[in-house]
Write a protein that binds this DNA or RNA. Structure first.
Length: 412
DNA sequence: AATCCACAGGAAGCCCGGGAAC
DNA sequence: GTTCCCGGGCTTCCTGTGGATT
């Protein structure tokens, strides 16, 4: 086989091929368009709450609710940017800090990050939390200024001692001489406040804004605006945007999902050397996104969870009865021995199974089988064959491909 | 009605690695 | 070096439980 002749210039061909996009960035989540359609009311509301900062009064704390992809983050960031800029123009020092609590999900980390924003040198671990707090306060209070702290995904903080932080931050003003601090909390979880201490509830939720999901029509407008920027003219047919919008609307009106869908559709079409996006491309893109999400979720699982998942797959492949925690644990123990890995306790395994359930990889429900005890009934929620391959791709699990479960004893 | 299975799932605390301070 | 703090994964110990079976 003559590799050289058949493949030389392979990149040339790919480069000269005319792409359908003119600016793919416009479809990314990080892209902030000049206008945010269907969020005018929320923008106005948030702006009026924060406006006092420009008169050097402390704005109320705000809680913003809404499901993912409803524009909470983008609107808040947008307002904060405007606020800082206006502040600069007027000579009023306003600074805003954005923190995503999914990453910084403990009180220490939140404080450390905040302190760092103000130039304090705080190690990412090591100090007592009080000290970090003190250092943060000192840095903030160094000059007369208004500070708005944007805590995204604030719901991720509760239960990890993060409530304490929220409480401290909402009352830090009483300990400050010069600066003023306000908090904007952004939560995906509508019932978030239920888990909070009532003292925090009242101080954090002085103002509340709810972002409702976009409907299909609104998603269309958003997509249209972005498609205009992202694609070359004539690429996006009449039906493309309504279809993408409709598919995304089924996922609780998630604009991010809609944008992903549009982008991936374009990529699929491009790869097939098509000149316009067709319905088939969109359907394919939709499946691809779903599959990619699962694969990514499985691939990044910790080893023990992978092993558990593998156990479930083996049991499922044997067919027959429903799978219970005890059975999974048995198989899991064998796999561990085979790979000479530590065996976790059943208690821990039970938690791991629940985690897999939350990730949507498994489906587990607690059932009582009367005399035969109470257990979780476990079902796989992903295609077994594909996922099995993903798991076997992990170096640590390589040897599993040859592992065989002993046949079940007869009569059982 | 009482029993009892096969776990669920809460509470507390251990251990470890990372790091600072002394 | 020793001693302290933090967070995360994990174990130990525990109490709770729905309903088939006795």
């Amino acid at each position: 086989m003559d590799l050289k002749s058949s493949f030389s210039g392979i990149f040339d061909a790919l480069l000269t091929k005319e792409p359908l996009f003119k600016n793919k960035e416009a479809l990314r989540h990080s892209y902030t368009p000049a206008e945010l359609p269907h969020r005018e009311a929320e923008i106005k509301q948030l702006a009026s709450i924060l406006a006092p900062a420009l008169r050097f009064e402390t704005p109320s704390n705000v809680l913003i609710y809404g499901k993912s992809g409803t524009g909470k983050t983008i609107v808040s960031k947008f307002i904060c940017k405007e606020l800082t800029e206006t502040g600069n123009k007027l000579g009023v020092p306003v600074s805003t800090i954005y923190l995503n609590c999914e990453v910084t999900d403990t009180k220490y980390r939140v404080l450390a990050n905040l302190a760092k924003e103000f130039g304090e040198n705080v190690p990412f671990t090591g100090w007592p939390t009080d000290k970090v707090y003190a250092s943060f306060k000192e840095a903030v209070d160094a000059k007369k200024q208004c500070i708005i702290i944007l805590l995204d995904e604030i719901d991720k903080l509760v239960g990890k001692g993060g409530d304490e932080i929220i409480y401290n931050l909402t009352r830090v003003n009483s300990e400050l001489q010069n600066a003023r601090v306000s908090i904007i909390g952004i939560s995906n979880d509508l019932k978030f406040t239920n888990y909070l201490d009532s003292r925090i509830q009242s101080s954090l939720g002085e103002e509340e804004i709810v972002f409702s999901p976009y409907n299909a029509k609104q998603l269309e407008d958003i997509l249209r605006q972005r498609a205009e920027l992202a694609f070359k003219p004539g690429v996006v047919g009449e039906f493309v945007i309504p279809l993408c919008a409709a598919l995304a609307a089924r996922e609780h009106g998630d604009a991010r999902r809609a944008l992903d869908l549009l982008r991936v559709s374009g990529e699929v079409a491009e790869r097939e050397n098509a000149e316009i996006i067709t319905e088939a491309h969109i359907r394919k893109a939709n499946e691809k996104i779903e599959a990619d999400n699962i694969v990514e979720a499985v691939r990044t699982l910790p080893t023990q969870s992978k092993l558990l998942l593998y156990s479930v797959i083996l049991l499922e492949e044997m067919g027959g009865r429903v799978i219970t925690t005890g059975e999974v644990y048995d198989v899991y123990k064998r796999l561990c021995r085979q790979l000479s890995l530590d065996v976790l306790t059943q208690r821990r395994v039970s938690d791991l199974i629940s985690e897999l359930d939350m990730l949507g990889i498994l489906n587990s429900s607690v059932v009582s089988k009367g005399r035969y005890g109470r257990t979780k009934e476990i079902k796989l929620d992903v295609p077994p064959v594909g996922i099995r391959l993903v798991l076997e791709d992990d170096i640590r699990l390589k040897n599993l491909a040859t592992f065989k479960l002993p046949q079940r004893r007869l009569g059982e």
